[in-house]
Design a protein around this nucleic acid. Structure first.
Lengths: 157, 157
DNA sequence: AATGTAACTATTTTTTCCATAGTTACAAAA
DNA sequence: TTTTGTAACTATGGAAAAAATAGTTACATT
C-alpha cells in the first residue's frame, strides 16, 4: 500500500479519486450564499426575513438556498407560531457540525483579509475566557496539522 | 462590554458588523472552482493542464479563477522551464494557511456525505502515523471548540 | 513539414442570478 | 371594516456568469 504526501508534486496519477469528500461537501455547501446563511445561523439568525435583511439576498435566491439546505438535512424548517406561514430554519446536528469549518474560514479572513482596523469581531471561548484563536489538530496525537505532515491513501474496494 | 452567545437567538440587533471575516474570506475563495483548485493544490497539482484534466473546468473559467487567486496572493505563478509559456501555480504562505479549512471541509464530507463504501480517501498524519481525524481546538486552552461555547464581541473603533 | 503539448484567448450558447413586482395568510390599527 | 402591516414567499424579465467549442501562441518532437 502506497501513500503520497500532500503539497509535494505527484508525478504519476496514482489512483486519487476524482470525487473526494471535498467535492461531496461542496455539492451541498459550495455556494457563497450558503456559507453566509450558515454564518447567520451560527449567530442565531433563523428567520427568512432577518436573513433577507442581514444578507441582502434576493427573495428567490434565499428561498432556493434555504430549500437546498433543508433538502440536504443541514437545516430543519419548523413553525414558530400557530400562524400558518411562520417558519424558522434551525441547524441540525449535520449543520452544527459545519461550525469548525466556518470558524477556520473566519480565522483565515481575520489573519489575511482584515484591514488596518483589525478583525471586525472577536470570538470568545467561554470555557477559558480567551479570545478564540482556533487551530486544527490531529485527534490521535493532539498536534497541530500542517499540510506538509499529511499524506493520503485511496480507499479502493 | 456585552457579548452574545452564538447559536442562541439574538433578540436585539446588537452591533454585529454586516461584513465580517467570513464575508471577507468568501470574497477571495467563495466559489466552487476556487475550492476545487485549492484541493488540487494541496494534493500537489500545480499546472493548468493537469488542473483542466482533474477538474473538467472550461479553459476560460479555470484561467479566470487562477488569475483571481494569483491577484489575491493565494497562488504564485512561476515559470517551471526555459520555455516561454510554461507556468506553475504554487501555494503562497497565505494559500497554505487555507489547509486547515479545507481539511475540516473534507472531514465533514467524510462524516456526512460518504456513501456506504466510506470515504474515497484517507489522510494520514505522518508524525504520529494515524489516519487523520482533525478537530478544531482553542489555542488558549486546547479544548475542542463547540458552537455553543463561543460568544462574540464587535470590535468598534 | 507535420504533429504534439502547454497554456491559454475568443466566441457563442446556455444557465443562473438578481431586482422588482406580486401573492398568501393572517394580525392589528384606523 | 377597510386599510396598513408583517412574514414568507412566488413569478417574471433583463443582466451577468458559466460552459462548450474553436482558435491562438510558442515552442519541441517526429
Amino acid at each position: 500500500m502506497t501513500t503520497k504526501t500532500i503539497v509535494t508534486p505527484s508525478t504519476d496519477d496514482d489512483a486519487r479519486p476524482a470525487r473526494d469528500s471535498v467535492a461531496a461537501a461542496l455539492e451541498v455547501i459550495g455556494d457563497r450564499w450558503v456559507f453566509l446563511i450558515l454564518r447567520e445561523a451560527f449567530f442565531g439568525v433563523k428567520r427568512y426575513d432577518e436573513l433577507r435583511k442581514n444578507l441582502g439576498a434576493s427573495p428567490n435566491i434565499l428561498a432556493d438556498r434555504l430549500k437546498r439546505l433543508v433538502d440536504a438535512n443541514v437545516l430543519e424548517k419548523t413553525r414558530y407560531s400557530d400562524h400558518k406561514n411562520r417558519f424558522e430554519y434551525q441547524l441540525t446536528e449535520k449543520g452544527l457540525d459545519l461550525y469548525p469549518m466556518i470558524v477556520m474560514l473566519l480565522a483565515w479572513g481575520d489573519k489575511w483579509e482584515a484591514g488596518a482596523a483589525g478583525p471586525p469581531l472577536s470570538l470568545i471561548h467561554e470555557p477559558c475566557g480567551h479570545i478564540l484563536t482556533p487551530t486544527v489538530n490531529c485527534s490521535a496525537c493532539g498536534e497541530p496539522v500542517r499540510a506538509q505532515d499529511v499524506s493520503w491513501r485511496a480507499n479502493t474496494e
